[in-house]
Simulated scan of single mutants.
Amino acid sequence: MRRRRSIVVGVDGTESARDALDWAAAEAAVRRLPLRVVHAYAAVPSWAVLGELPQPYENVGVPDVARSVTEEAVRRARQVASELEISTRLLIGAGAPALLAQSGDAELLVLGSRGPGGVRGLFGGSVSFRVARHAACPVVVVRPMQPTTPGRSAARVVVGVDGSHRSECAVEFAVRAAAQRGVGVTAVHAWSPRGTADLAAVTDDWSLAEAAEWRTLQRFFAPWRSRLAAAQIELRLVQGRAQDVLVAESAGAALLVVGTRGRGSVRAAIAGSVSQAVLHHAGCPVAVVRR
């Protein structure tokens, strides 16, 4: 009998991680999957080398504090879904490698993002991007809630489409997520004029290029329409850089889904820059789906 895969969530006691935990617990409950809570800690923390003892560690050892992080996470997850099947993993090591090691048999890996600002913000962003780019399963980064004016795709699932195989995986994930939530999908294709239309500003060529991009988007998404049941699909062709277009569309959305090839070619690095930008600036949780 095939063992059920789990929703894996990384926790570290921060508010960002608690948001990720709430999201992961709700997702596990809806999918009827177990939740695996993972916390990584350093065997020799920096304060031990410096000879400084922070307040939380005065009367207990590092493993005790680390264990309390997972115990608090389990209690919080139970508040979201009381019947949830929950397991914990307490690991020694850095956060990104620990989470990546757990991604091999995971259905989905969820972690928080501390957002921009300061050394911790940059560190948090680097961990989320590294995990999203190299995990063996889809990764959802739950960004801090920010006051924002909802965009035209508010409460919908937004997916970036570029016509490549990378997009196929992202669209499949987005269609499933939208059907699960009973909402619509907004498929966004960003494009920029090129060639003679760009250099000579020939209106007819510009229109032809736009029409060709629109046909590509429609043709690419056609097979997915029948799989979304009652949820509505909206196709959007927007001129501009992909990361700017997707960030703007994400304001108030239920989820933003992007694809990535992972490491490799120059084109993969460009695709990676798009996913990195949305991980830092999107106005909703971001799912990164590798081929």
Rank of each mutant, 00 (worst) to 15 (best):
1 M>W: 01
1 M>C: 04
1 M>K: 10
2 R>W: 01
3 R>A: 13
3 R>W: 04
11 V>S: 09
16 S>A: 15
17 A>M: 09
18 R>S: 12
19 D>W: 01
22 D>S: 11
22 D>I: 12
26 A>G: 15
26 A>T: 04
28 A>H: 07
30 V>E: 13
32 R>E: 14
33 L>G: 00
33 L>C: 12
35 L>G: 04
39 H>M: 10
42 A>G: 04
43 A>G: 09
44 V>N: 03
45 P>M: 09
47 W>Y: 15
48 A>H: 09
48 A>S: 14
50 L>A: 15
51 G>Y: 04
52 E>Q: 13
53 L>Q: 13
56 P>S: 10
61 G>V: 05
63 P>A: 09
70 T>R: 05
71 E>W: 02
75 R>N: 07
80 V>F: 03
84 L>I: 14
86 I>K: 07
89 R>M: 04
89 R>Q: 13
91 L>H: 08
92 I>L: 12
93 G>W: 11
93 G>P: 02
95 G>V: 15
97 P>T: 08
106 A>E: 06
110 V>H: 05
115 G>T: 09
116 P>M: 09
117 G>I: 10
117 G>Q: 08
118 G>H: 04
123 F>Q: 11
123 F>I: 15
124 G>P: 11
125 G>Y: 08
127 V>D: 06
129 F>L: 13
130 R>K: 10
130 R>W: 00
133 R>Y: 00
133 R>S: 15
134 H>S: 14
135 A>Y: 00
135 A>H: 00
138 P>M: 08
139 V>W: 00
148 T>G: 09
149 T>G: 01
151 G>V: 08
153 S>N: 14
155 A>G: 13
156 R>T: 07
164 S>Q: 02
166 R>D: 02
167 S>M: 07
167 S>V: 06
168 E>R: 12
169 C>M: 07
171 V>L: 08
174 A>R: 03
176 R>F: 02
177 A>V: 02
178 A>N: 06
182 G>C: 11
184 G>R: 13
185 V>C: 11
188 V>M: 07
189 H>E: 08
190 A>W: 07
191 W>D: 01
191 W>K: 03
193 P>R: 00
194 R>Y: 15
197 A>Y: 04
198 D>F: 15
199 L>D: 06
208 L>V: 14
209 A>F: 06
211 A>T: 13
215 R>M: 10
216 T>I: 02
217 L>W: 12
217 L>V: 12
220 F>N: 06
221 F>P: 00
222 A>N: 10
229 A>P: 03
230 A>Y: 01
233 I>Q: 10
239 Q>H: 13
239 Q>T: 13
241 R>C: 01
247 V>S: 11
250 S>G: 07
252 G>H: 02
254 A>L: 03
255 L>D: 03
259 G>S: 06
260 T>D: 13
260 T>I: 03
271 A>R: 10
272 G>L: 10
276 Q>Y: 09
276 Q>F: 07
279 L>C: 03
279 L>N: 01
281 H>D: 12
283 G>Y: 03
283 G>P: 05
283 G>Q: 03
285 P>K: 06
286 V>E: 01
286 V>L: 05
288 V>E: 02
